[in-house]
């Protein structure tokens, strides 16, 4: 399995997959939660090993925040089980093993940044020194500012500081970079990667796909309350769309192209044929053998965004089977199989 370079640089090793018996940082089994008629989470199974950096992607309403809330013990699941380091979420929170940045989490109003830090520091079992947190979250320039007067980016940095304060082994970050400009966002990830260098586990939800791709060594895609994909960024990209091989449309039989090894789907757009392949090398060799006259061949890799859109718009249960997404469902089955095997 290929591990993303940055991730390898961070942990110094490929991510550990927790085997049965070892204490996983997070273990979710059949997690289910409904709010009235809304099925927010429909049976999520997920195991995150210690030291992993995992991104959770999904469109709005996919269940990301609800999953986070159940990991933190804020929300009680209707069914299923959440364990953090083998403990009940409340116990993990109480002993300061989890720190979290909640989505659009509120800040104490009518108080200065430093007041908020001092107040919260006393509520954790083994907090980090305040100066350390201030430096890591880069709060130095606005410590005396009232929380109501902070900019969006500053407020996010304070929320990040509050997540670091308990000196947690597991960091849960729900859309941490919303409201940050590019520069702050970059330094935020640098800080987070530094914080996790000693083997801490991070699970973050984001809307920014490139962030997930760059920072996380593993990406979990949620759609409609279910896990629809789980793997490295490269795996997710190749799973869904693989690569696209296109060639001039010379009237070749589509069925013949679809039968080539590795091909997951065939589309004809304009004067070109597009083959979605899970193994472009094999497909191209077979293509050239079967159609020696093929010309204007191009191979392009799918972007994570394409994969994301394909995965989340064809999630099981949504009943959306249009647009020649034949291969996508096939890949879903692979994916489920794959997770069972882990």
């Amino acid at each position: 399995m290929t591990t993303f370079d940055l991730a390898a640089a961070i942990t110094g090793a490929p991510s550990p997959r927790t085997r049965d018996g070892a204490p996983a940082a997070v273990r979710l089994a059949g997690l289910t939660k409904s709010y009235g008629p809304v099925h927010a989470v429909r049976g999520v199974d997920l195991t995150i090993g210690t030291g992993e950096i995992v991104a959770v992607l999904g469109p709005n309403g996919a269940g990301k925040s609800t999953v986070n809330e159940m990991i933190l013990g804020l929300v009680r699941p209707d069914a299923g089980d959440a364990a953090v380091f083998g403990l009940d979420p409340h116990e993990a929170v109480r002993t300061g093993r989890v720190g979290a940045m909640l989505q659009a989490g509120a800040l104490l109003s009518d108080a200065r940044v430093i007041d908020v830090l001092r107040l919260m520091r006393g509520l954790h079992a083994h907090p980090l020194p305040i100066d350390d947190v201030i430096a890591r979250a880069d709060l130095g320039t606005f410590l005396k500012t009232k929380t109501d007067k902070l900019s969006g980016g500053q407020a996010q940095r304070l929320r990040y500081a509050l997540a670091l304060l308990p000196d947690p082994e597991l960091l849960i970050l729900d859309e941490p970079t919303v409201g940050m400009d590019v520069e702050v966002r970059r330094s935020f990830w640098r800080s987070m990667i530094d914080f996790t260098s000693s083997g801490r586990t991070v699970m973050f939800a984001t809307h920014y796909l490139e962030e997930a791709d760059q920072v996380a060594e593993r990406i979990v895609v949620l759609a409609d309350g279910r896990v629809v994909a789980d793997g490295t960024g490269a795996e997710i990209r190749s799973r869904v769309a693989g690569r696209t091989i296109s060639l001039a449309d010379d009237g070749t039989d589509a069925a013949e192209l679809a039968d080539l090894p590795g091909v997951a789907g065939v589309e004809r757009i304009g004067a070109r044929c597009y083959l979605h392949s899970t193994d472009s090398d094999t497909t191209v060799r077979a293509l050239l053998a079967a159609c020696p006259e093929a010309r204007e061949i191009e191979i392009t890799s799918a972007k994570l965004e394409d994969a994301f859109v394909a995965l989340t718009s064809h999630a099981p249960g949504t009943g959306n089977d249009a647009h020649g997404a034949r291969g996508v469902h096939h890949d879903h089955d692979d994916d489920h199989q794959d997770r069972k095997n882990r």
Partner: peptide
């Protein structure tokens, strides 16, 4: 688990102490 071993030097010992009730 390589990275757990990596982390153990800095993370594990501190967990034993509960400094606050």
């Amino acid at each position: 688990m390589t990275s757990a071993t990596l982390g153990a030097t800095t993370v594990a010992p501190r967990r034993e102490v509960m400094t606050r009730g």
